[in-house]
Amino acid sequence: MLDVLSGFLVVITVIAVGFVVGRQQLLGPNAVYALNMFVFWLATPALLVNFLATADLADVFGENLAVVVLSSVLAGAVGFFGAHFLARRDVPDSLVTLLACSYCNGSNLGVPLVAHVLGDPTASLPVIIFQTAVYGPAVVLMLDVSTRRRRRREDGPGQVRSPAPRLVRELLTGVVGNPLIIAAATGVILAVVHARTGWALPAPVAEPVATLAGAAVPVALVAFGMSMAQVRVLGPSSPGRSVWAAAVVKTVVHPALAWVLARVLFDADGPALLAFVVVAALPTAQNVFTYAQRFGTNTVLARDAGVVSTLLSVPSVTVIALLLG
């Protein structure tokens, strides 16, 4: 437990350093974007390849993936039905709430957080693959259909052409061109080769990959702290109660569901149970705001839920570490 808590204290400290740097604008106005792009395109893929190349794939894609899928769907259902039937929001707005309650920040924050707190970045890999390849595209297609129906009701029939073929192409391109998916596929291939033949990456390749991988955690956490210093949320136009409800579902209900599923279905305990629950407690991903903005629906909730859930994830993961570490 002390190792987990000390690791999480380091994470909080580095985020705080990033916050101070962001407040003082020490790295310039566009530094957050540049740092995030470095992490997304170079450091995080290298981190995944570095760990996956010799990993046991059964540990990565077994019970972990099942808990990710089931807990995400259940948390999303809580968000959707709460928004649709309690808050009386229409289907597109409720779908955005569904994502805000269940779509984890598994890459930008998830990989460095679980890498440092749990010592294993592959714990967040199942959620990245599930969300990027299945969950996100499925909900985006539902958003496309429901927003077009809403516009037909508002503008009359025949006013909005279906962009579905283009949307499908963009989704497929996004999955195939995602550096995390490419890195995961590369790592899986290397892991299979290593398991069957014992072959590993030669040092001239492995060492640069490991060097880039070492930059993923500190750079991502500094960039995250800087971004927190530049965002203002919960303004007059924000649906405050809905934002807080979505953030609580994401950082409290979602990990609670993961704990129940892991205990009931797999009798998990120890480090495995901690990993399942910490991954589920990750905050709402930036992708949710991107999707909401793309379809022009519930954008303020998506933006504010991402920020508030990120703030709540700090005490949430701390408590999880205390109880399960």
Rank of each mutant, 00 (worst) to 15 (best):
L5C: 11
L5P: 10
S6R: 14
F8N: 15
L9S: 15
V11I: 14
V20M: 01
G22I: 15
Q24K: 15
Q25L: 01
L27F: 11
L27T: 13
G28Y: 04
G28V: 08
N30I: 15
Y33I: 14
L35A: 15
L35S: 13
N36W: 12
L42I: 15
A46P: 05
L52Y: 07
A53F: 02
T54D: 09
A55N: 12
L57F: 08
F61D: 14
L65N: 09
A66R: 14
L70V: 15
S71V: 10
S71E: 08
A75C: 00
G79Y: 00
F81A: 01
G82R: 00
H84S: 04
H84L: 05
V91Y: 02
P92C: 04
L95P: 02
T97W: 00
T97Y: 00
C101K: 01
C101N: 01
N105V: 15
G106I: 08
L109W: 13
V111A: 03
V117L: 07
D120C: 06
P121N: 11
T122M: 04
A123T: 15
A123F: 05
P126E: 15
V127C: 02
V127E: 03
Q131L: 07
A138V: 08
V139S: 00
V139Q: 00
V139Y: 01
V140D: 09
V140R: 07
M142Y: 03
D144Y: 05
R153H: 01
V160E: 01
R161D: 05
R161I: 02
R161K: 03
S162Q: 03
A164M: 13
R169T: 14
R169C: 04
L171S: 12
L171R: 13
L172V: 15
G177E: 13
A183N: 12
A183I: 08
A185P: 11
T186K: 04
V188H: 09
A191W: 06
H194L: 04
A195W: 04
A195D: 14
A195G: 08
A200Q: 09
V205W: 00
A206C: 03
E207C: 00
A216I: 11
P218A: 07
V219I: 11
V222Q: 14
A223E: 06
A223Q: 09
G225K: 08
M226W: 09
V231N: 07
L234E: 01
G235V: 09
P236R: 12
G240D: 00
R241A: 08
W244L: 08
W244Y: 02
A246H: 00
A246W: 02
V249S: 02
K250A: 00
V252P: 03
A256F: 07
A258F: 13
W259P: 06
V260E: 06
A262Q: 01
V264T: 15
L274A: 10
F276L: 12
A280R: 07
A281V: 12
L282H: 09
V288K: 14
Y291N: 06
Y291H: 06
A292S: 14
Q293Y: 12
R294Y: 05
A305H: 07
S313H: 02
V314N: 06
P315K: 14
V317G: 05
T318K: 14
T318Q: 10
V319K: 07
L322M: 13
L324A: 13
G325K: 10
